[in-house]
Nucleic acid binder design. Structure first.
Lengths: 207, 207
DNA sequence: TTGATTTGGAAACGTTCATTCCCTAATTAG
DNA sequence: CTAATTAGGGAATGAACGTTTCCAAATCAA
């Protein structure tokens, strides 16, 4: 037993009985059910079943349902950002980095991943209205994406792969809407081919 | 008393006690609360308060909560489609019709209307997972938008305002994602100027 | 007028929900 | 070894939920 958390535990061992469950695995289970069913349609029972924890343990570890969502949300963003940055780093030019970012979301917009949905997009629809702090988390997540996209566009303009005539702020916001829309439409079960062709069409935004 | 429904009642008077409330006004209230709070976060109490009806009356008129949503959803689509087609009709060229359609959603993506959200986008996130029929309603709503956009693009290609090189299906799906994404981002409270500049940028999809 | 039918609405119903309590187990500090 | 502290988990709790029931009111058919 006594499996310590992995990513979250670089710190010293605390007093008292040590946590038995794997925090990251538990959060992965939680975010899976949250993103598929949404915040309000997810019950504590759903979470106990998915996470393999009793309700008492969940409340001890996360304070309340909102706390579970926030923790899962944090992990979701962290993992997503890591994968996204890896894809961007694999591209040479600014324009190709933009394309890789668009493709990152495109690959999440069909089949199983598409149906699972996006925790941020879904959260904007029901979690954000819990309170202002919750809403701020959603806004922050969108803003990070928007800023990254704007940065990539400027890189493209610097290396000559994206015309200087493109307004980075406007194009970044347009891409943000497009990629979040991908996740919405992805819930309805479209084919990879359709979504990729839409993504390729969207690249006209940086011509 | 005895105010009959307006749009829904061209038919003959039925037997029994006549309906006292205005169906369309009640549905307008219902769709307001559904689109702001989402399906699952909206309680029957929310609906009785907003619609000015007792719970018993709601169940008599709509069968259950799902029925209220479906009725409100139908009215939402009908009203929206009417306004959208009016804007499209006001434009001369195919390209301008596309722009008017994009602007229709753009004007719903900031301020009060933006915060209120879209019943279809929100429904894709929590109503659609109720059952297959509910999901089909969401798919149908998206499909109608996508088809309309593809038609407008073909009109533009016919009248020479949109290049023949544009793939209508791919561009229409890209626009669909963009416009639905507008509604997602609109929930976070952006300015009109930002959203309009993104909309103008999106018009590059038909160049 | 009488009966059938439908609506309006308040109260009641059973269920499920998020949350708390409490006891046991495992660990550290001294 | 003892006390303090924290985690695990099952049972209990109170509120809120969606829904049903029941009865009065209003209309149509005869």
């Amino acid at each position: 037993m006594t499996v310590a958390t992995l990513t979250s535990e670089a710190k010293t061992r605390s007093r008292g009985r040590p946590r038995e469950f794997d925090m990251d695995a538990a959060l992965d289970s939680a975010l899976r059910v949250f993103s598929k069913r949404g915040y309000h349609a997810t019950s504590i029972s759903d979470l106990t079943e998915a996470m393999g924890l009793a309700s008492g343990s969940i409340y001890k570890a996360f304070k309340d349902k909102r706390g579970v969502f926030l923790a899962a949300f944090g992990r979701y963003r962290q993992l997503g950002r890591r994968r996204l940055e890896a894809m961007i780093a694999s591209a040479e030019t600014g324009r190709d980095k933009v394309f890789q970012m668009v493709m990152y979301y495109t690959e999440l917009s069909y089949g199983e991943a598409g149906r699972k949905g996006c925790l941020v997009v879904g959260g904007a629809n029901d979690f954000a209205l819990l309170d202002e702090e919750a809403a701020a988390h959603i806004v922050t997540a969108f803003a990070a994406d928007e800023k990254l996209m704007a940065d990539l566009i400027r890189i493209g303009q610097a290396d000559g792969t994206i015309p200087k005539t493109v307004d980075p702020a406007a194009a970044a916001l347009a891409f943000l809407c497009f990629t979040k829309g991908l996740r919405v439409i992805g819930k309805t079960g479209r084919s990879r081919e359709e979504m990729v062709s839409a993504a390729e069409a969207a690249m006209k935004l940086v011509t």
